[in-house]
Structures are given as C-alpha cells and as structure tokens.
C-alpha cells in the first residue's frame, strides 16, 4: 500500500523509481529522500487529448508529478484526508478533492449527462460537481480531501443509499446515481424540510460521505 494515514489530516506516500504519484499542487507538507515535484502540464495522465478534455470540462485541477525515491507527506488546508484503495473499480470524484493518487491509475473525465441525461446535469449542479466529474480507474491508492471525517457506506443490490448532495464526497464501483427530489407544496411555500434533494445510489460499490455539509 503506497499511502499510509498518519493522522486524520495527513497522509504519507512512498515514492519509488518507476512508481510516480500525482498530487495537488502545494499539498506537500514534507518529504525525505530524493524526490522532485514537477508541475504537470497535462494536469495528469493521458497526453494532450485528455488534457484538452479536462480543460474544456473544467476538471483540470493543477496537479504535480511526484517522482524519485523517498516518502512524502501530504495534507491540504486543514481538511481531513481519506485513503481509498482501488482494486480494478472506478472512482468518481471531483478533481479539487483529489489530494494525491498513484500514477498507475487511469484518469478520465465523465460527463454528468451520460448518467441520466438532463437529470444528471441537474444532479451535477446540485452536488456542486458541475457538468463533469473525474474518474480514476485501475489498481492503486487515492487520497481524497473532505471537510470533516469521511466514512464509507456500502451499496449493495437492493440496498440503495440516499446521501445529502452536500455531504457526498466520492463513489466507487458499478453505481448508478439519481437525484431524487421530494418537492411538495411545503417546499413551494418555503416551509421545506431542507432535505428536498437527495442522491440515490444503487448498484454495487460504495459511497464516501463527509460528516459535514460544507463544500471544500
């Protein structure tokens, strides 16, 4: 495992030759050994095509390549950090929540409308994800940032999970999500419960939820 959780807000990652990492720029706290930090022009993986894709999708969080041999400590802005191990699944996460991830993971961009069409686009607006979200797939570790501690809720067939859009951090696996809106006359006259919109996640996988309704 390349990432070790040191405290609730700090993650240590081991870097070795041939096993680079990507991390958010400016998120390095300390390092030992010979490690270099190079701002990644393409903002991640996949060459020029992916880079343009990310720029257009506004998912191009400034990343840097971390190479060499040694161990690096990451943390950012006093936010909680959480390590997610991927074993072949796909993780969907907002790019600005990415603290660091292993170079072996494939990075992509997904159009929110590809899941649920117009409803997907609206869902992106409500969760603050925008029109696009970042995907990471393959095997390796990812460290994500959250406001407050993060916990993992498993999603199994027949056991859908409903999540407050503001508390949603990321999800992995074969998961379909749908924005469910419970709009009644109370909402229309401004006497709603404050829980009108919920993300309904179904399928097989897990969703990561932060213990706060504050965005990063």
């Amino acid at each position: 495992m390349a990432f070790t959780q040191l405290t609730s807000k700090m993650v240590r990652a081991d870097v070795a030759p041939g096993r680079p990492l990507f991390s958010q720029r400016g998120a390095m706290l300390a390092y030992t050994g010979q490690v270099t930090f190079t701002p990644s022009i393409t903002g991640g993986q996949g060459g020029i095509g992916s880079m343009i894709g990310r720029r257009v999708a506004n998912e191009a969080t400034p990343l840097m390549t971390v190479e060499g041999s040694g161990s690096v400590m990451f943390g950012h802005g006093g936010h909680h950090a959480h390590v997610i191990e991927l074993t072949g699944e796909t993780l969907h996460v907002e790019s600005d929540r990415l603290l660091a991830f292993e170079g072996g993971l494939r990075q992509g961009t997904m159009f929110m409308g590809s899941q649920g069409g117009v409803m997907g686009v609206i869902r992106g607006q409500v969760t603050g994800q925008g029109l696009f979200t970042t995907t990471l797939s393959g095997s390796g570790a990812v460290a994500v940032l959250a406001h407050g501690g993060v916990f993992e809720l498993p999603i199994r067939p027949g056991a859908a999970v409903h999540v407050d859009p503001q508390a949603y951090v990321a999800h992995r696996g074969e998961v379909r999500n749908r924005l469910s809106a419970a709009v009644g006359w109370r909402e229309l006259v401004g006497r709603g419960s404050g829980e009108t919109f919920q993300l309904e996640l179904t399928g097989e996988g897990a969703v990561y939820v932060q213990a706060s309704e504050e965005k990063l």
């Binding site: 040191l6 405290t7 700090m10 030992t32 943390g75």
Partner: peptide, 18 residues
C-alpha cells in the same frame, strides 16, 4: 497546532507552512 502534530526524524525537507 492545526491537526495533530507528527514527529519526523531528519533528514527531511518541510513545507514552510507545515
């Protein structure tokens, strides 16, 4: 401190803000 303090043995290079 902002978050728990972590002790590190030198040699180490540290971000000034951390």
């Amino acid at each position: 401190s902002n978050g728990a303090v972590v002790f590190v043995e030198p040699p180490v290079r540290v971000d000034p803000q951390a």
